[in-house]
């Protein structure tokens, strides 16, 4: 344990989290107009209709997998008498499939972004920054999942997950992460990079998932002049 580890696993997560929250709040305040999917379906729809759902649905499963793997402590599943082999088989099968689907979806989406001239022309600079990081995070995560196939795999529930939960108690267990295999460390670092890019790219559209639609009446009425714009000046960000 040295200063580098303290900086990487004790300080950096909080910096990334602060940037994510403050950046999103700042953007919502000053660039609400920029909160959009910036869809390119108008330009190209065949590949999108495969790649888009594959990537997004896969990502939702991956997210659920991270919640189960990182947030649920090992003691809880043991108390519920979930056998260790079943837990890991599930993580490998479901997590691996979801991860593969996400990577495949992203590959299709990147391919169409590069090969379709109209979509390529609609690509912004923030997209160019986000896509490589996103791809790297996914590949690293998939590689980490693959390492659980080894004979004596690293138990991330004893290491990475402990560190992750300790972040929320404001008492980061730097040692737990410092001893994790390199691929896990790289995955965590890249994920932090992604979170810092998040507010400044099109990824913000994830925060505006329209769940409230399920409970809304179909027709929306509004008074003239209600909901006036909050910010006087509009700038495009991302």
């Amino acid at each position: 344990m040295n200063h580098l580890h303290t900086a990487l696993w004790g300080v950096l997560p909080y910096l990334a989290f602060t940037l994510l929250v403050a950046g999103t709040a700042w953007r919502y305040r000053y660039d609400r107009f920029g909160f959009t999917t910036r869809s390119s379906q108008l330009h190209e729809h065949r590949l999108l209709s495969i790649g888009g759902p594959l990537f997004h649905a896969g990502l939702l499963f991956v997210l659920a997998g991270h919640v189960v793997g990182l947030v649920v402590p090992k003691s809880l599943t043991e108390r519920m008498h979930v056998p260790e082999w079943l837990y890991h088989l599930n993580a490998l099968a479901v997590g691996g499939t979801a991860g593969l689907a996400t990577v495949a979806g992203l590959a299709i989406l990147v391919h169409r972004r590069l090969r379709s001239p109209a979509v390529r022309a609609a690509t912004s600079r923030s997209d160019l920054a986000v896509y490589p990081v996103l791809a790297a995070v996914l590949v690293c995560g998939l590689a980490a999942t693959a390492t659980t196939l080894e004979a004596h795999p690293y138990d991330y529930r004893e290491g990475v997950a402990v560190w992750f939960r300790s972040l929320f108690t404001l008492d980061p267990d730097v040692a737990a992460m410092a001893h994790a295999p390199f691929v896990y460390q790289l995955h965590a670092l890249l994920a932090m990079a992604l979170f810092t890019l998040w507010p400044f790219s099109r990824l913000v559209h994830a925060f505006t998932a329209p769940v409230a639609y399920l409970a809304r009446p179909y027709i929306v009425y509004r008074h003239r002049g209600s909901g006036t714009r909050p910010a006087p000046q509009h700038r495009r960000i991302g």
Binding site: R32, F33, F35, T36, T37, R38, S39, H205, T208, P210, A212, Y213, R216, I219, V220, Y221, R222, H223, R224, G227, R229, P230
Partner: peptide
């Protein structure tokens, strides 16, 4: 919920700040 019908004159509009595309 970005699209709405104005109560006063019935004009249907898109709230550009709420539209997410």
């Amino acid at each position: 919920g970005a699209m709405y019908k104005r109560i006063e004159d019935g004009i249907v509009l898109v709230d550009q700040d709420r539209c997410r595309g």
